[in-house]
Simulated assay, not measured.
Amino acid sequence: MTIKKIDKGWYVDIWPSGRSGKRYRKTLSTKGEAIRWKAWVIQQVTQNPDWEPPRKDRKHLSDCISIWFDGHGQHLKDSKSRLQILNKICAELGDPIAAELTPEQYTQYRAARANQVTSNTLNHDLAYLKAVYNELVKQGQLKANPLIHIKRIKIDEHELTFLTKNQIQLLIKHLKERRNKDALLITKLCLATGARWSEAEQITNQQIRPFSVRYTGTKSGRNRTIPITEELHSEIAHNRDNDRAFINSYDAFTAALVESGIKLPKGQRTHVLRHTFASPS
């Protein structure tokens, strides 16, 4: 049973049960570590001749994301977009062995992206990847979450912006000039009910009732019914013969907003409609 110095460190090569038994080999950084590992292996084999040292977990990050998605992620409302984001992160990290990803590697990756995306996006990415590790630790698939001590980036709170009456009139004027007329109706619905753009855009004809709309499958998970005026109801009711009341109209809204010259803080494009609904003016 030998311990010898090699270029990479200290090499241990032992046969605790003799040449007829199992052989154990490992390279460690220091001689002290090598001596302790040798003693530990001999103790384990003495207690249990069939003992095997724990094998390294060789699952790649992509494997862990697949396991997470099959067992948990697919049931989330944003499952498809979440999976797309996680796969992108995984590819950009080089699909490392999940257990070998270090906090330093991830923070370097995050720093490299700081000029490409917002701090809010970086915080979401960290939360999504942490969730994958946490879930696999719970399942016993991984021993630890290497990202657990990485903190979110602190973001200064920005004052919420809302549209003035003149800006609303200006925006509606430009929306009326668009070929896509649904953008105008969705905007009116958001202003009247405080709905998120996606909630209003995806609404079905069945959710539009006499003088109210019912939002289901919302971000908060709660269904809510909001009253609307008779005039707005007459505009949006049975707007289309198919199930959905509107077609996708985000690009049309964006074009009208740009043409109007209204300047908004980053990240408040359609959300300004929700802020305007909640504003006291």
Rank of each mutant, 00 (worst) to 15 (best):
T2R: 03
T2W: 05
K4N: 14
K8E: 13
W10K: 03
W15I: 07
S20L: 15
K22H: 11
K22R: 14
R23H: 12
R25W: 13
R25P: 08
K31W: 03
E33T: 01
E33L: 00
Q47F: 03
N48G: 02
P49E: 03
P54Y: 08
R58L: 15
L61C: 04
C64D: 04
S66F: 06
W68F: 09
D70R: 03
G71F: 04
G71N: 08
L76I: 10
D78G: 10
S81M: 14
L83W: 01
C90D: 06
L93A: 05
L93E: 06
P96R: 02
I97H: 08
A98E: 02
A99V: 10
E100K: 13
E100P: 03
Q105C: 10
Q105F: 08
Y106T: 08
Y106N: 04
Y106H: 02
T107R: 11
A111S: 15
Q116K: 15
T118G: 09
N120T: 10
L122P: 00
N123P: 00
H124K: 05
A127H: 10
Y128W: 10
Y128P: 02
L129N: 00
K130Q: 13
A131E: 09
N134K: 06
N134W: 08
Q139L: 14
G140L: 01
L142H: 00
L142M: 09
L142T: 07
K143Q: 14
N145Y: 12
I150H: 06
K151I: 10
K151P: 02
K154C: 05
K154P: 01
L160F: 07
L160V: 05
L160Y: 07
T161P: 03
F162N: 11
H174T: 14
R178V: 09
R179L: 15
K181M: 08
K181N: 09
K181Q: 11
I186H: 07
I186K: 01
C190A: 08
T193N: 03
T193V: 00
A195Q: 02
R196K: 05
W197I: 06
W197C: 01
S198Y: 01
Q202N: 12
T204M: 11
I208L: 11
R209V: 14
P210T: 11
K219T: 13
N223R: 11
N223I: 07
P227N: 14
I228S: 00
T229C: 06
E230W: 11
E231G: 08
L232I: 13
H233E: 11
I236G: 00
A237D: 06
H238K: 15
R240Q: 10
N242I: 13
F246T: 05
N248W: 01
S249L: 01
Y250F: 06
F253A: 01
F253M: 04
A256M: 08
V258F: 13
S260T: 06
I262H: 07
G267F: 09
G267W: 07
Q268W: 04
Q268S: 11
Q268Y: 09
T270F: 07
T270G: 02
L273Q: 12
R274C: 01
R274M: 06
F277W: 08
S279L: 07
P280G: 13
S281H: 12
S281W: 10
